[in-house]
Design a protein around this nucleic acid. Structure first.
Length: 435
DNA sequence: CCCGATGATTCGTA
DNA sequence: TACGAATCATCGGG
């Protein structure tokens, strides 16, 4: 009993961290002796010399060269393996982490990560494609895409860095273990397990990276959505262009895709001279959608505007008419259609003529000579040309779309007649004038 | 700060 | 899928 405690004190009384373990101390005065033993050990450590180290090295070498060493080593490994396995069990098989899968899916969907572990170049292509899908939607993606690209780049570089670090660390540990396996019973299986552990650790780090990347994308997205909400009014020129088109096509204010593009381009051109952002096609669509519904809801409110724009277009039209008339006079008056004959079917031109004729003296008596067939044709043609939309509209199937009911009105209640005749009494129900 | 104007979004529909 | 209708959210003038 006495001897045993003494042995423990000298051998195992100090833990790895260096703290003395509180061993059961016998009732006699072994405390002093304990201190003395520690002092002895310390003294021995302090007095280790190169010579003693060399001695130890030589002893080690001798052991390594012992003929029984391999056999004993394998036995030791086996024993260790058995105890280790019994403690740890077989928890090596790792089921795919659902959270990790979720993150991967999301990154894939957001176009940040490509197909994992298959090809790096393909990843970029799919990413750009994934972003490109929504590119034409109501938002200008340039900013968003740039930011997303930034995130993607950071993600990939970080991922690569982690991969590299993992590999380096793994090889380092493997080398270390192999080195140590000469003095300690370390089986290859154990090394493999250690490598697995390292990989798992690094994969958790990777998951953190993925998580933070996801968060970044989410933040970007939310900010992006906020940006969409944060609207800016269009510039005056842009509104003017859109209004001109709207009121000159009042009977059917449904611009085709080409016309929308044209309008967007036109607005962008005028905007480029001043400040403001460009206008996308979907913004044009939004504008027309809003305009139609709001015009229809309260025609009276837009009466003035309609007259204004009718006059405006008429002015530009007459300017073109003058040229057209001049042309037709210099050329042959019998063939007024210098362009294609289909241009007569421009639906908007009729509206302009009607609104022009309906203007209450503000514009109509002054310049428009609305008498005579050939001149009317010239006007129509000229308007079609001066507005510059004829190319997009001519022969466009989209231009006679869904809701057209016989007379070409885009709604029964709202026909160009509303522009020509004041609609104060009958039609002004004012359902939501004050909301 | 109020309130109308207006661009954007959402949802139901044909 | 484009459109109408309702609604949201911001802008901007008074």
């Amino acid at each position: 009993m006495e001897e045993q405690s003494h042995l423990m004190q000298t051998l195992g009384g100090v833990t790895l961290t260096g703290h003395p373990v509180a061993l059961p101390v016998p009732h006699d005065g072994t405390d002093a002796r304990n201190k003395q033993d520690i002092g002895d050990i310390l003294h021995q450590i302090m007095t280790i010399t190169d010579q003693s180290l060399d001695e130890a090295q030589a002893k080690k070498h001798g052991l390594n060269c012992h003929r029984m060493k391999p056999a004993l080593f394998s036995v030791l490994c086996e024993i260790k393996e058995k105890t280790g396995l019994s403690i740890r069990g077989s928890q090596d098989e790792d089921p795919p982490d659902p959270q990790l899968m979720r993150l991967d899916n999301m990154l894939l969907a957001e176009g940040v990560s490509g197909p994992e572990k298959r090809g790096g170049t393909a990843a970029f292509a799919t990413a750009t494609a994934a972003v490109g899908v929504g590119a034409d939607n109501s938002i200008e993606h340039s900013d968003y895409r740039a930011k997303l690209c930034q995130i993607r780049q950071i993600y990939h570089t970080e991922l690569e860095k982690y991969e590299q670090a993992c590999n380096e660390f793994t090889t380092h540990v493997m080398n270390l273990l192999r080195e140590q396996s000469r003095t300690r019973p370390i089986s290859p299986k154990e090394i493999e397990r250690m490598v697995n552990i390292i990989h798992r650790k690094f994969s958790t780090i990777q998951m953190q990276l993925k998580q933070s990347t996801c968060e970044a994308v989410m933040i970007l997205r939310s900010r992006f959505l906020d940006a969409r909400r944060k609207r800016r009014n269009f510039s005056k020129q842009a509104t003017e262009i859109l209004n001109e088109y709207f009121y000159s096509h009042l009977s059917n204010p449904y611009p085709s895709e080409e016309a929308k593009e044209e309008l967007a381009k036109k607005c962008a051109i005028t905007l480029s001279q001043g400040k403001g952002s460009t206008i996308t096609v979907s913004q044009v669509s939004n504008w027309f959608g809003n305009k139609r519904i709001r015009y229809k809801k309260n025609i009276g409110k837009f009466q003035e505007e309609a007259n204004l724009y009718a006059a405006k277009t008429a002015v530009t039209a007459t300017q073109a008419v003058a040229a057209a008339v001049h042309n037709s006079q210099t050329n042959s008056p019998a063939t007024p259609s210098s362009g294609s004959s289909g241009s007569y079917s421009l639906p908007g031109s009729g509206d302009i003529l009607m609104s022009m004729s309906g203007l209450n003296g503000s514009y109509q008596p002054t310049q428009v000579p609305n008498t005579g067939q050939t001149q009317g044709d010239s006007i129509r043609h000229a308007i079609g040309q001066s507005l510059g939309y004829s190319d997009g509209l001519r022969g466009n199937p989209l231009y006679s779309p869904h809701g057209l009911n016989g007379n070409g009105g885009w709604h029964d209640a709202v026909t160009p007649s509303s522009v020509t005749s004041p609609i104060e009494g009958a039609n002004s129900v004012h359902s939501d004038t004050s909301n």
